[in-house]
Amino acid sequence: MNLIHRCITGTALALTLTPTLTAASGVESGKLPFKPLPVPGGVAVVALPAQATAPKVSYHGQPVLVRKGPSGWQAVVGLKLSAKPGEDALDVDGHAVSFTIKPKQYPEQRVQLKNQRQVTPNAEDEARIEKEQLLIGPAWKAWPEGFAPSLHFGRPTPGALTASFGMRRIFNGEPRSPHAGLDIRAPQGQAVRAPAEGVVVLTGDFFYSGNAVFIAHGEGVVSLLCHLSKITVKQGQKVKVGDLVGEVGATGRASGPHLHWSLSLNDARVDPRIFLHL
């Protein structure tokens, strides 16, 4: 296991806990605590060939989380928003196992920002963004030892969930990439808490995300909590569900105070609502 899979270097970030957050497993029971949604931006659960030990599974070159199901092993696969509907396949111990991605249409979102540079970065901004991606890229792939995610997550801060995940975004009239996270409406300074157990693999102040915290929950499952006004955790710090990590803010590319929560499986950003018991 290399250092990148253990920990990513960065600066400190803050996260807070909501009283309603509770831990739930599903790892030992064999029953997954969510309903599969095999669409772009969703999660597929793929039955695997029967065998005594867990197989090694990858999808488009990324290792995939494997769980023991009621009737055998199953792969829990994150699907990127760019995934094409139709037949696709996993690599399972060197053999292809096919599954189907269903179509899904996401609505359009128009956002007006006061800072035009957050829509069209200048050369200096672009250089900064490029450097930040060298840190952020490995953080999404973190696979720390000793962590097995329960795949049950608590809401990281109280507030109304928006339908923003997957929306085709238009900033100041200019089309940009789809929104790969869930926004939670919340006031400035409200506590943000860890949605599940994990280790903080990266914190920092980034051009688009503002003050941000990356938490690796294990086996390629990673949360990003961003636009924070304050960060209260450090890189390498272990957190439990509900631990404070920061406070709601409007840093980075944000039109006002809110929490942005991205959740990633096998380096694919998926809709966090799939894992919430609403």
Rank of each mutant, 00 (worst) to 15 (best):
R128M: 12
I215E: 08
G189N: 05
R128I: 14
V199E: 11
P187V: 01
P195E: 02
Y208G: 09
K131Y: 01
L161G: 03
A216R: 02
L202F: 06
A194T: 00
A163L: 02
S229E: 11
V222D: 04
A160T: 10
R176K: 14
G181C: 15
A148Y: 11
L182W: 07
Q188G: 01
I215M: 05
Q133D: 01
S229H: 06
L202V: 05
F147Q: 07
I170M: 10
G146F: 07
E126Q: 15
F207W: 12
F206A: 01
L134V: 14
P187I: 00
R176L: 12
H179L: 09
P178Y: 09
R169N: 13
T157I: 05
A163S: 10
T162Y: 03
A186Q: 10
G204E: 09
E124Q: 11
W140K: 15
T162M: 06
A186H: 14
P195N: 04
N172E: 11
Q188D: 08
H227I: 01
A196Y: 08
E124Y: 09
S223A: 04
P187K: 04
E130L: 11
I215R: 11
G220N: 06
E124K: 13
P149Q: 03
F153Q: 01
S150G: 10
R155M: 04
G198R: 00
K141M: 08
A186F: 03
P158Q: 03
G166R: 04
C226K: 02
S150L: 08
A194K: 10
E145Q: 14
I215Y: 12
E132D: 06
F153P: 01
Q190R: 07
G159S: 01
N172C: 07
R176P: 10
R168S: 02
D205L: 00
P158W: 02
L135F: 12
G173D: 08
P138D: 01
P195Q: 04
G198I: 08
S223I: 00
E197L: 09
R168P: 02
G204Q: 13
T203Y: 05
G204I: 03
G154N: 10
H217P: 04
G204P: 12
I184Y: 14
A142S: 06
R185M: 11
F165N: 06
P195C: 13
G210E: 07
H217M: 04
D125V: 03
G159H: 03
V222F: 06
A196L: 06
F147R: 02
S223F: 07
E197V: 09
A196G: 03
R168F: 11
E174V: 13
L151C: 03
P149M: 03
A216T: 01
A163E: 05
G218D: 05
Q190H: 02
A127M: 11
S150W: 15
G220S: 09
T203I: 06
P187T: 02
G166Q: 07
P138K: 03
D183Y: 07
A127I: 13
G204M: 02
A196N: 08
P156C: 10
S229M: 12
P144L: 01
P144M: 00
Q188K: 05
N211Y: 00
R155S: 02
F153C: 01
V221T: 12
R185Y: 07
E130D: 10
F171C: 00
P138M: 04
A123V: 07
R155Q: 15
G181H: 14
A139M: 08
R155C: 05
H152K: 13
A139R: 11
I184H: 11
R169Q: 14
E126N: 14
R176M: 13
V213H: 05
C226N: 04
P149H: 06
R176W: 12
